[in-house]
Design a protein around this nucleic acid. Structure first.
Lengths: 106, 106
DNA sequence: CAAAGCACTTTGAATTTCAAAGTAATATAT
DNA sequence: ATATATTACTTTGAAATTCAAAGTGCTTTG
């Protein structure tokens, strides 16, 4: 079981970061506002958690102008996609181990 | 997506507590030593995280003697089992949303 | 040109984490 | 008999993390 738990990525234990990654897995890119609405979180929380993901090299940022206003959108790096997939695999293994009707299979 | 994330239980975001709960889902009861080996964690970490789960009413503690030595074993309360199942369901929903090859379904 | 609004970022108080140190028992060596 | 080690946990507090309020730098509106 330890091997499975070791593959749970500490960074993705946070609910907001988990949500950001999940959202970016199914959307090529999302901007700040849309992400905030989707996750139902505050500006500060979203901003600092994106920064964390960015510093880990999991998320990349694109800043541009839409008319006169700045627009910041986010997407996964290939490393981010891989890391998150590994995390999901670990969670799935844990769930499977738990779902089995008998003794643990982990 | 927010509704799914809201069902992720904050308490189970911690890797050690997640492991304790998963282990107790498939084992009627486990003692301190076995849990420590299974999770590969330290005494202090295990102890304080079990306390947290206990205070939330998710885990119950049974202390007894085996020969002259004390033995402390842990098991889930029905509330704990239900809370963890709810958490797993939320994770599964998130994974499914992410696994779908298209746009998000959450 | 204030004042308000938008799109974020920074800050720091509050919470959480976790390993080292502590406690209390038995076992074993001297 | 009495150190000394070992086992089985618990407590403590320094360090890390969280997140919302406050801040910044724009644009738009009154």
């Amino acid at each position: 079981m330890k091997q499975i738990i070791d593959h749970i990525n500490k960074c993705f234990e946070n609910r907001t970061r988990l949500g950001i990654m999940a959202a970016l897995m199914v959307n090529e890119s999302i901007d700040f506002k849309a992400l905030k609405v989707l996750l139902g979180t505050t500006d500060g929380n979203l901003s600092s958690n994106i920064s964390t993901l960015e510093q880990l090299g999991y998320v990349k940022v694109k800043k541009r102008f839409i008319g006169k206003a700045t627009n910041t959108s986010y997407s996964l790096t290939s490393g981010g996609r891989k890391a998150f997939q590994g995390h999901l695999d670990a969670l799935e293994a844990l769930i499977r181990g738990v779902s089995v009707d008998g003794k643990e299979t982990n």
